[in-house]
Design a binder for these strands. Structure first.
Lengths: 327, 327
DNA sequence: CTGTTAGCGCGTTCAC
DNA sequence: GTGAACGCGCTAACAG
């Protein structure tokens, strides 16, 4: 079913149908009505492929997330997606996978679909392959990275100052009488590197020996295990900062299980102010990296850049400490 | 940049470029190499819009979820998406919103994109508007509903027998000496109606008075509140089944806070075997509706139906009870 | 093995 | 206010 079929049934030409479809002015009211009637009767829907081809624009916004099952990334994707949908775009969300290769591949896939803008959610997109893919295949459309940075003329960034956030956490704990503060990291990402760096800097400033687990499985179980390891190596630990809330949830559960009191014996601070931190028992204190604010900014930047392709912005937002039951 | 540009630079015709692009056999090795070189040098990527137009297929799979932030729906979407991506499809995930209107609207949007297949994740898609939209706009492509059913020739379904699951939970509690079993529901969905129906049937079979909260906010806070209401009305309650794990997490926290022992005083069973149930403290016993199995089945059915458009299947999977620390 | 031609479904001139 | 003709970028059929 094409506009020609509609045209024939309505006794008009295809261009008239096209005009009706696109709400163009300068059409006889009766003609318009008749065409509209046929369109509805036949449940006709115009091919976006054909439209995209002639209009040279797909009306689509690409949103890439390394793993859509990740709660705080999907929240960001959600926010951006909803905003664009409201503006009439068709925003398509894709799971880009964990490897750099597959992320770059997805950039290319979206390029073949001729998207109008691209949002990359998460610091792990910040890698050479993705940068290269953008340079090669999307050199001219607006791109924004949530929590990552590229030195490219068409890509903006909105970054949480996680180094500062972690430093604040260490300093808070230190000034509240914790002198053996540990840090537990899950995996190696640009974002986590900033957190660790913040931890090291603050520890050094306070003349504290760093007590750190640099990697563990990315779940509650992993947090528990890593906590055990940390305590085995540094039994004196009286506070732990976790690179991710979920780790802290597992860790606090483990500490409770072995008879520690929280926060009396050991204080705990997670990261991200995720739903997990709110519902865990005890409720987790956490470094709020303001991910929702980041996403909001991503959307706004992209919106502007779609109108003015020369628009690029690099923004940094400051995290805050949220105190609940573990500090 | 089009294949004509490539053709000119390579000194061949556009069809040769097209053949190279599509790995068609019967091309001189040298010619192929030269074309490939130019393609790489120029970072050319073929327009999918044009391809879709001529091939009459977009190579896209639509996946609709009412709210992508919902953890167990996104898990399903993830699984289906990954499978199709491996098969070379471009699977696009969209947030269809909570209203029936917007869900139907998204069906239409995907129709204009001429997707090859559609997966609807969640029982809330089971409504007249969506059914109508499928009939009108996607009457001929394979559709599958996870946890919902339509009487339409092209739509399959994979359904969790939640009625049975809830009955099992009631019966388990009853045979373990709980005689005042409550049920807490969040919102009105086809899926939740089945759970409540199961609860009512089992309660009646055991001659138990139904003790129920029919709606509450869809979060831990809401679960806590609803639990308080339930206890106010029925102080004798010695077990509670929650329509959703997260409600149970909030509920158990509330019960602990007011000094109840779990499961000694009150046993608790959630629903879905979600991550929340695993990490909560105490760890939640839960009705596992096997959502991952459902999604896997959705994928398999859709795969088959893409090849054989007459293929339709309606499958029911049985839930099981998972016992952890609250029973 | 390769080029020419036509057409996919739509939007957009430019006539009338 | 409306239609005819062309072109968007690509693939397929047919020649050669």
């Amino acid at each position: 079913m094409t506009i020609y079929d509609i045209a024939r049934q309505a006794g008009v030409s295809a261009s008239t149908v096209s005009r009706v479809l696109n709400n163009r002015p300068g059409i006889n009211g009766e003609t318009r009505k008749k065409v509209l009637r046929i369109i509805n009767e036949t449940n006709f829907s115009a091919s976006e492929a054909a439209r995209s081809l002639v209009n040279q624009t797909s009306n689509m916004i690409g949103i890439l997330v390394s793993d859509i099952r990740n709660q705080h990334h999907i929240e960001g994707a959600y926010m951006i997606s909803q905003h664009f949908v409201e503006k009439g775009y068709c925003s398509i969300l894709m799971n880009a996978g964990s490897s750099d290769e597959s992320k770059a591949e997805y950039v290319k896939i979206l390029a073949t679909r001729r998207i109008n803008a691209l949002a990359l959610i998460g610091s792990t997109f910040q890698c050479d392959l993705v940068k290269q893919a953008i340079e090669d295949y999307l050199p001219a459309i607006p791109v924004v990275v949530q929590n990552g940075y590229f030195d490219l003329p068409n890509v903006s960034s909105v970054i949480a100052d996680e180094l500062l956030g972690t430093m604040d956490a260490v300093n808070y704990l230190y000034t509240h009488n914790r002198k053996a503060i540990g840090f537990i990291n899950n995996n190696d990402t640009p974002s986590n590197r900033k957190k660790m760096k913040g931890y090291f800097i603050a520890a050094e400033e306070r003349n504290m020996k760093p007590r750190i687990i640099t990697s563990c499985p990315d779940d509650a179980e992993g947090g528990a295990m890593a906590t055990r390891h940390l305590l085995e190596e540094y039994p004196e630990v009286d506070a732990i900062i976790y690179a991710v809330d979920l780790l802290g949830v597992g860790g606090s559960r483990y500490l409770l299980d072995i008879g520690k009191k929280i926060p009396a014996d050991i204080a705990i601070i997670g990261t991200d102010n995720s739903p997990y931190s709110k519902i865990s028992n005890p409720r987790l204190s956490t470094i709020d990296n303001k991910l929702d604010e980041l996403s909001q900014d991503c959307y706004e930047i992209l919106s502007r850049a779609i109108i003015d392709p020369s628009y690029v912005e690099h923004k940094v937002v400051k995290p805050i400490l949220v105190h609940r039951e573990t500090t």
